[in-house]
Write a protein that binds this DNA or RNA. Structure first.
Lengths: 340, 340
DNA sequence: CTGAAAGCGCTTACAG
DNA sequence: CTGAAAGCGCTTACAG
């Protein structure tokens, strides 16, 4: 089955290819009657303009790129990325842009793919995730002039527009909530230490701890996996003056932490309170369900995509502060055990 | 920064554009010395051939498509798809193909996207997931002649090549294992009933139940979400002669089921054994860790991608039977409680 | 409002 | 082994 081209439509309609192009793209240059007739014929013979020909004629590729540079193992287990992607998709498909996805091993590979995509003109722009301290991707993207929007911030995005959420404030509120419940020994199990948002959260945690006079507000680094989350939890709960509350940087580690508590005979929430960041259906799956800090991740992805499309279409995009994560108290938090 | 074209390379090398093209694509028509010189210059000025120009010249788009037609909610929570995607990616990027991903609401939307992609020549082929009974996508893809490989089977793929795993055998082995432990009342919490592999598993479950004389081998339908998994489990465990073993069609429902047992004061595995299909890190996160039926999903995705690339390159692809899922016994299974 | 033509950046027969 | 040229299917000034 041969695919119809613009020439087929033009022949059937008895007009020039140019006229068909104008009609299809909503440009002036054809009468309304002609436009309708051309559109009807195009629909009838199932014509879609070749994306390659369009891209080659200086129009855009109508595709944006997203690269994930995390081990497959971590990627699969965290609902975050899939939720982000579906939000991005919703925005893109409404404007009939495609999403080109690539999973790579590290930042070097990621940078290489950006260079290749730019050379190939394969995408019109990219969404950048997992900002790191001193991120090497940002200057490369700026140098290439490849439109890009950073997901994360507020700092570290260089001159690139970014979409972010005030994680420091959300963390502070969480600590204050635990403090109000009576907790004085609060520890935090953090994600990968070289991610910028981990650093931001750690600083915020230290600050609020000092403000409230919690001398033992410790942050312990981890890597988002259940294994590490469990290991760190075991260590924290084995110390002589163990924490009465734990805040985890993702849902997976929090669930692993809950299992460790159960395995050690520590009752949640009577003996230990647990808070998960990244609220997700996983948090409601376990018993007790986890108190969690969450926000609308698909919407976040959608906003980032919308910003990127603005940049691609030549508009100024100043970036956007998204909603702050809010705490949903469930069964895993309560007052600390009374001191005897 | 202007992107270098093949003409820039040709000028610098002092040859024609055709010669550059031959050199780049490893075609005969240039001397080895010239080829090396051209390659060096291309690398030096950072040239990558425009994917649009390539695609337009009759070469391929060097991209394949994957459409996921499940609600975002379900997508995010199951590690399966992200693992599949990373396996697909690994195979594709080794051959420098791109992956175009789209998330849609239903099969109608999916079919529409296939038609559009075909018309736009945006992808060279597609990977088809979540085969259903009487799948409407298969005849459309066959009619279009868009190269496609189905992930799943063994039946229902029509004339399309497919990659599959013998789920019936894996399920039978699992039931036999539980039988050997002493279980006689075994129930199964199934996934979405209109997915073909759910039907295959259900039939296999009934068959092995009959063969072993388990008159109460019930399958209850669900939808893969934790909510539904919990609800169904509550109902099953509330019946007068409740099952002593439950087999779940995914990890998420199994974890929800475990929580329900805990909430009802039913001890796992002393009072109830639980088996999860789709082994994933989630299964090792809970307490007790779940006995699970699993296999290498990234490899599965990689095999499907490899088959598709074969089809695209014009080779016959007969399809492929992948490894059978194997049972990893962990803490959630044991002998049934003794009858008093 | 419409038609004829150039051009995007490649690939690939076709002559030399 | 190499060069000149046509063609892929669009978009977009440029004349009429």
């Amino acid at each position: 089955m041969k695919r119809p081209t613009i020439a087929d439509v033009a022949r059937r309609a008895g007009v020039s290819k140019g006229a068909v192009s104008y009609a299809l793209n909503g440009q002036p240059g054809v009468s309304e009657a002609t436009r309708q007739r051309i559109l009807a014929i195009a629909a009838e013979i199932g014509f879609s303009p070749s994306s390659a020909a369009r891209a080659l004629s200086g129009a855009t590729a109508r595709a944006i790129g997203l690269i994930l540079a995390r081990p497959a193992r971590t990627l699969g287990i965290e609902p975050f990325f899939m939720e982000l992607i579906s939000g991005v998709e919703a925005e893109l498909s409404a404007r009939s842009y495609a999403l080109t996805l690539q999973v790579v091993a590290d930042q070097d590979a990621e940078i290489e793919v950006y260079r290749r995509w730019w050379g190939e003109r394969r995408v019109d722009g990219v969404l950048v995730c997992d900002l790191r301290t001193g991120d090497r991707r940002v200057p490369v993207l700026e140098e290439l002039g490849l439109p890009a929007v950073v997901i994360g911030g507020p700092a570290g995005a260089g001159g690139l527009p970014h979409v972010w959420s005030d994680e420091a404030a959300a963390l502070a509120e969480t600590v204050e909530y635990l403090y109000a419940l009576g907790h004085r020994r609060i520890a935090r199990v953090a994600g990968l230490p070289d991610l910028l948002h981990t650093a931001l959260r750690s600083r915020a945690f230290t600050e609020v701890g000092q403000r409230l006079g919690l001398t033992e507000a410790v942050t312990v680094s981890s890597d988002y996996t259940g294994e590490e989350g469990a290991r760190v939890t075991r260590r924290l709960l084995s110390s002589r003056l163990r924490p009465t509350a734990l805040i985890y940087d993702n849902d997976v580690m929090a669930i692993a932490g809950l299992s460790v508590a159960q395995e050690m005979g520590i009752t949640v929430p009577a003996d230990l309170s647990i808070v998960a960041w990244d609220d997700s259906p996983l948090c409601r799956l376990v018993h007790p369900p986890l108190t969690a800090l969450g926000r609308d991740i698909p919407a976040y992805g959608g906003h980032a995509a919308a910003q990127l499309l603005q940049v691609i279409e030549g508009a100024e995009a100043a970036g956007l502060e998204d909603e702050q994560a809010h705490l949903t108290p469930r069964g895993s938090t309560g007052p600390p055990p009374s001191q005897h």
